[in-house]
């Protein structure tokens, strides 16, 4: 009996594989990306944004990021601003969620005021940069639906090309094309299409490094806006995984202490 079942399975396997729809395959890849990036617990990192307009004028943003992984929900993140100097000490606390709006509080140090802010505005520029809040917030599988397009290659690396469609009606995008590295299941490039389905931006990930022998993070994320000619280079430095952050580092008191 057993050998027959086995051989039947072997014959049917390719058929089963074929029976997976592009949507299912896209979702499987997204789930695998998330599975491989689960379990880091927390990290601290320094972020620098170099903003450039089409005339080449530059502007700098310096921030520090603290992220805590939350089981079965989006991550908790605290971003503290160091530059420009007039917003030094301003801090943003976000509890992101797999579905629905995130919870966000902004701390304004001059007034010592913590403001709960409307987080529905995901598509607006983050600190005047080419990154929207939705581009850098916790990337959860549930935030999109997916479609596998083709096996492709990006800069000589075998990759999967997926399309994903934001579930949130307040997203600034109709769709995103994502090139995913086949070996490591990490994004290499994302093309963003605006609400009119016109190509808006391209994000390229550079200088991937592996932390704790598992978690890949890009040193640089370069976002180019094709409609305005502006660009933002987001550099990540001083990654410190499992730095000892806990839930207590992500409340309104810690937001006021952050600096």
């Amino acid at each position: 009996m057993k050998p027959i079942v086995l051989s039947l399975l072997l014959i049917l396997m390719p058929l089963l594989a074929q029976a997976i729809t592009p949507e299912e395959r896209g979702l499987e890849i997204a789930q695998e990306i998330e599975r491989r990036d689960t379990g880091f617990h927390d990290f601290k990192a320094a972020m620098t944004m170099l903003l450039k307009n089409k005339h080449g004028e530059e502007s700098l943003r310096d921030m520090r990021n603290q992220t805590l992984e939350v089981e079965n929900d989006g991550d908790k993140t605290l971003v503290i601003f160091d530059e420009p100097r007039d917003v030094k000490g301003t801090a943003l606390l976000s509890f992101s969620h797999k579905t629905g709006d995130d919870d966000q509080w902004l701390y304004l140090p001059a007034l010592k005021r913590v403001k709960r802010i409307a987080s529905r505005n995901k598509s607006g520029p983050f600190m005047g940069s080419e990154f929207a809040y939705e581009d850098i917030s916790s990337q959860e599988v549930e935030k999109y639906t997916y479609k596998f397009i083709e096996e492709s290659s990006y800069e000589g690396k075998a990759s999967f090309l997926l399309e994903r469609y934001p579930v949130d009606p307040n997203s600034g995008y109709t769709r995103q094309q994502v090139w995913v590295d086949q070996a490591q299941f990490i994004p290499l490039k994302i093309k963003y299409y605006d609400r009119k389905n016109t190509l808006l931006k391209t994000l390229v990930f550079r200088g991937y490094q592996q932390y704790l022998d598992q978690y890949w993070r890009a040193d640089q994320m370069y976002m180019e806006n094709h409609q305005t000619g502006k660009s933002t280079l987001l550099s990540w430095e001083k990654y410190n995984f499992r730095s000892g952050l806990s839930d207590g580092d992500f409340n309104k008191n810690s937001l006021k202490r952050a600096r």
Partner: peptide, 9 residues
């Protein structure tokens, strides 16, 4: 008291 409902505070 503040209720944060979408684009409304």
């Amino acid at each position: 008291l503040q209720a944060t409902k979408g684009d409304w505070l």
